[in-house]
C-alpha cells in the first residue's frame, strides 16, 4: 500500500510540475466501446470517463499530462495519462492531431487498489477554434490491463475504442 500511496503522490507532484509549464487546459468526456477482452471478442460497452489535462508545445509537437477517472469492467479507476501530440493537418478553422498516450494508475478498491496501465492512440479533430477555447473530438484505440485483478476476475485486459468530446481552454502564450 505504501508503494501505491507513494505512486499517487509522485504522480501528483509530476503533474503539478508539468502543470506549472502548461499552456492549455482541456476537459474531456469519453465513452469506451469495447472490442475485445480476455473472455470475449465482440462489441460491449465498457464505461465512460472524464479527464482533465494540461498541454504545452514541445518543439514541433506538444506534450500533455492529465488525470482521468473512468468506469471499466472491474469498477472504477484513476490514471495519469501522458501524451505526445503530433499535428498532422493544420488549417485556420481546424486541426487534425494524433495523440500517443501511455497511462498508469490504480483500480479503485478499498484497502488494496490495484495497479493498471494503458496505451492508446487517438486521432482527434480540434475545431471551432478561437483565441479562448476550442472543441475537440476524437476516436481512438486503447489497451488497458490490470495484472493483479486476474486473482479476482476472469477479465483483466480490455481493448476499447474511446470516443472523446472535449473543450480546450487556451492559455496565454509565453514569451
Amino acid at each position: 500500500m505504501d508503494f501505491k500511496k507513494n505512486l499517487i503522490i509522485s504522480l501528483l507532484f509530476a503533474i503539478a510540475g508539468f502543470n506549472l509549464f502548461g499552456q492549455h487546459l482541456e476537459f474531456n468526456t469519453k465513452g469506451f466501446f469495447g472490442l475485445w477482452n480476455n473472455a470475449q471478442t465482440s462489441y460491449f460497452y465498457d464505461g465512460a470517463a472524464i479527464e482533465l489535462l494540461y498541454e504545452r508545445p514541445y518543439k514541433n509537437a506538444a506534450l500533455r499530462a492529465g488525470l482521468e477517472y473512468r468506469s471499466i469492467d472491474w469498477g472504477n479507476q484513476v490514471s495519469i495519462n501522458l501524451g505526445y501530440v503530433l499535428t498532422h493537418i493544420s488549417k485556420d478553422k481546424w486541426n487534425l492531431d494524433g495523440v500517443i498516450s501511455p497511462g498508469i494508475g490504480l483500480a479503485l478498491f478499498r484497502e488494496n487498489p490495484l495497479f493498471v496501465y494503458s496505451i492508446s492512440y487517438m486521432p482527434e479533430f480540434i475545431f471551432a477554434k478561437n483565441k479562448r477555447r476550442n472543441l475537440t473530438l476524437g476516436l481512438g484505440i486503447r489497451y488497458t490491463h490490470s495484472p493483479a485483478y486476474k486473482e479476482y476476475g476472469n477479465i483483466n485486459q480490455v481493448l476499447d475504442f474511446p470516443l472523446k468530446i472535449g473543450v480546450r481552454f487556451m492559455g496565454k502564450k509565453k514569451s
Binding site: L12, Y54, G75
Partner: peptide, 25 residues
Amino acid sequence: KKLSLLIFILPIFYFTSCSYLPEEL
C-alpha cells in the same frame, strides 16, 4: 488554482468510488 482543482477532485472520486474486492476466485 489548477493544482487545487486536482487535489479536490482526486479524493472525491477516490472515496466515493472504491469497491470492495472479493476473495480470490
